[in-house]
Simulated scan of single mutants.
Amino acid sequence: MTEFLETTQGRKIAYSRIPGEGPGIVFLGGFKSDMQGTKAIWLEDWARRQGRPYLRFDYSGHGESSCRFEDGCIGDWLIDARSAIAALTEGPQVLVGSSMGGWIGLLLARDMPERVAGLITIAAAPDFTEQGFWPELSEEQRETIMREGQLALPSEYGDPYVITRKLIEDGRNHLVMSRPLDLPFPTRFLQGTADNDVPLEWASALLAHATGTDMRLTLVKGADHRFSTDECMELIGASVAEVLARI
């Protein structure tokens, strides 16, 4: 059942959670995705079978939460995630971040390390506004964003991506690849070799950049950005189980 959390910023965050024992699991969705996605639902079923607490939620401007997507940015969605974890979970959590959710997870590890017991990323896209969107835009498109405040780009996942000046400029305030990134807990990076949205080089660069004593990168040959085949789902579950066992 969907419930709502009102943050101190006045945003209403839609969420669903199940009870359980031991460290909980929090799913962090991707850019323009929501908590009804395949991976979020599959992982909830997995957590229920394991008797683990589990939380999934929609960032503001996503899914059933309040606000317009175009008005949001990485900093807003980070605050939403931080608020949800603080209000709706107890103790350190295992974060599972998909795509942009991987970036959010890395920021949470930096901002509230006492609440992070482990991290699994799926096609993590850290700093994607700066190392993905911005370099791929033409000079004309960049000028349009800076002058008009936004630009609509086609997306194979549905409605066009609206890239805003706020998103780009705020993203520069939340970069993780240009400053030290310590992950002092079990960390697993999962990446498909056929991902057309997050280059394989990003995963390798993240592994090389971050510091930690229990960190692994697993590549799945032929897996795309959705990372939602039965085999990929089982790998996600196995990775969460491994992290939980090593806490």
Rank of each mutant, 00 (worst) to 15 (best):
A109V: 03
W134A: 09
A205V: 09
A14M: 06
R110M: 07
E70N: 07
E156L: 13
S228I: 11
S99A: 14
P23D: 11
R110A: 11
I163N: 00
Y59C: 14
E148F: 01
A194K: 04
E140N: 03
T211A: 06
E6I: 04
I236H: 08
S178M: 08
S98V: 07
T38Y: 09
L167H: 03
L207N: 15
G97W: 05
A194D: 05
T211M: 06
E114F: 07
P186H: 08
V198D: 10
E140K: 01
L88I: 12
E143R: 01
G72M: 14
S83F: 10
A125F: 05
A194W: 01
E70W: 04
E136R: 05
H62P: 05
G212A: 00
G158A: 09
P126M: 07
A210M: 10
L55N: 02
G29D: 05
V220W: 10
E234C: 15
Q36D: 10
I122C: 04
A223T: 11
A208N: 05
A87T: 14
A40P: 00
E136I: 03
E231D: 15
L181V: 14
M177R: 04
G158H: 02
L217E: 01
I25L: 06
W46S: 00
G63Y: 04
G171E: 04
D197G: 10
P135K: 02
Q131Y: 15
W134L: 06
G75M: 14
G75E: 10
R52H: 03
P180F: 00
G102S: 07
R48W: 05
I247M: 11
M112F: 09
L244S: 14
T129R: 12
G192A: 01
S155Q: 04
R188S: 05
G29T: 13
L167F: 11
G10Q: 01
A14P: 12
A87S: 13
M233V: 06
A81H: 10
R142F: 00
M215Y: 02
M100Q: 14
R179A: 05
S33K: 06
R179N: 15
S155N: 09
V96T: 14
G30R: 12
A210Y: 11
Q36H: 15
D159I: 06
S83V: 09
I41R: 04
E64C: 05
I74M: 15
A238T: 13
P92G: 04
S178N: 12
L78W: 12
M35G: 01
K12R: 15
G37L: 03
L5M: 02
G61Y: 06
A241P: 15
T229L: 05
M112C: 11
G97Y: 05
T38R: 09
I145A: 02
A238F: 10
L108D: 14
I236R: 13
R147W: 00
E64P: 02
L151D: 00
E6S: 08
D34W: 07
R17L: 12
H62E: 11
P180G: 09
T121H: 14
G29F: 11
D127G: 04
E114H: 13
A84K: 14
Q131S: 11
K221L: 05
R49T: 14
Q191G: 13
L151F: 00
